[in-house]
Design a binder for these strands. Structure first.
Lengths: 235, 235
DNA sequence: GACGGTCAAATTGTATACGATTAATTGCAC
DNA sequence: GTGCAATTAATCGTATACAATTTGACCGTC
């Protein structure tokens, strides 16, 4: 759907920096790049065969999305969200997603529901598969559920906001997630769709809030300071 | 409060591009720059005595906030939100602001209330004054009310989102606003504070929604398509 | 005189170059 | 051998330079 949105606006293809940005973002969201990894401008540039100018632009863009943090005169790193940031991310999701759900439910079409069910199926299929590739695809699919709702809501601004929140959630889960299993309770997605379909709006919102709480509950957000040397050895 | 937030993070002062970005943003929000105005990279660079590199970075940053639109190979322009975009902006505000209000109410301190009351006083004072300078200050103060609530909510992510929404709202009002008077019904701000103070949370939310609806109602969002050539001449 | 195409001016897209800041390594003194 | 200081290497911050694209003008032709 992203390519479609890009196609219709034609020259929104813009500059090559966008492609690099998207590539790096995907790598971060799919957790091929770990939080804290240094992203040197030269390295990024060489990797994509462009100058530092474009690499820098891409990194700047990612910093606006909160996926990388650039420190003055030090460089860019894959963001390493603090426990507090993590809480804020999920707090923001609890704030926004019920509203998105209501908007989406008001505009959803049978075709949309069909596509969402297909996405769910794909998600389930990936869940049962083995291997890193499947795991990464699953991570993406699980986020796509929430993004698709945002897309259906028809509000591009809120949609972009959700894209940021979902991406950053992935980082948080990578850092603080405990269970090895999927980031999202898969069945909960299906329940939400069903509730929407049967017009039980309030219940759908409740399910959504529970779903988010469920994800957050799987995190271990204890403040393990970046280098707790003392405790790391003196235990 | 912005300078305070910047001061404590110290080297978040970052690059000179940030300053340029802020300066242009202020100019847009205070409506010294009209929607559609071209922002040539060279001109911006010369104006601030920096190279095109920094000017470009600043414009890119503003485009992420939706305040300027950069068209490939054509340049950057102060954003000219379409009626549909305008509706999305206010729809997003209706979606987010009640939640912000609830969060803020849960954490607000007497000191916060005092500061907000001071802001309200300042707002009222500016409202009675004459002149462009006062008008611009009033615009800013009226937005600051909503931003302060977001700040009190303690969620930096939601806060940033609100900053974007408020800034873009200013653009929309500049374009489609009808009444010459202030962008926001001033008294409504006071009512909201009072409701929060007396712990009437639901009523505060209702007031907020009405307030937003009130702003939107003052707009003339008839589709005057940028170049409705046909209708413009064939009538 | 109107239409079409070619050319020139201006502006953006990208790359490279240079200065500044930070981090690391080496060397020296203790 | 340890700790500090100065130097070196690497990386970022910014400016400049060149290539590509667009825009408006000029000119010839119909």
């Amino acid at each position: 759907m992203k390519s479609a949105a890009r196609a219709l606006s034609e020259d929104t293809a813009e500059t090559g920096a966008q492609q690099i940005r998207d590539a790096i973002r995907d790598a971060i969201v799919e957790r091929r790049l770990s939080p804290g990894t240094k992203l040197s401008e030269s390295d990024v540039g060489n990797l994509f065969s462009v100058s530092r100018t474009l690499a820098r632009a891409a990194l700047q863009a990612l910093s606006y999305e909160g996926l990388v943090s650039v420190e003055k005169n030090r460089g860019a790193f894959v963001a390493y969200p603090s426990p507090d940031e993590a809480r804020q991310i999920f707090s923001a999701r609890r704030l926004v997603e019920p509203g998105i759900l209501r908007e989406a439910a008001a505009r959803i079409t049978p075709a949309d529901i069909k596509r969402m069910r297909e996405l769910l199926l794909e998600e389930g299929r990936l869940m049962s598969e083995r291997g890193q590739t499947a795991r990464r695809a699953e991570i993406k699919a699980s986020g796509d559920f929430h993004l698709m709702l945002a897309a259906i809501s028809g509000n591009a601004i809120v949609q972009r906001f959700m894209e940021e929140l979902v991406a950053r959630s992935s980082l948080v889960i990578a850092l603080y997630g405990q269970s090895t299993v999927s980031s999202c309770g898969h069945s909960e997605h299906g329940d939400i769709i069903s509730a929407i379909e049967s017009n039980e709006l309030d219940r759908a919102c409740q399910l959504m809030l529970h779903h988010i709480a469920h994800i957050e509950a799987d995190l271990d957000l204890r403040e393990r300071k970046s280098l707790g040397l003392r405790e790391a050895f003196e235990l």
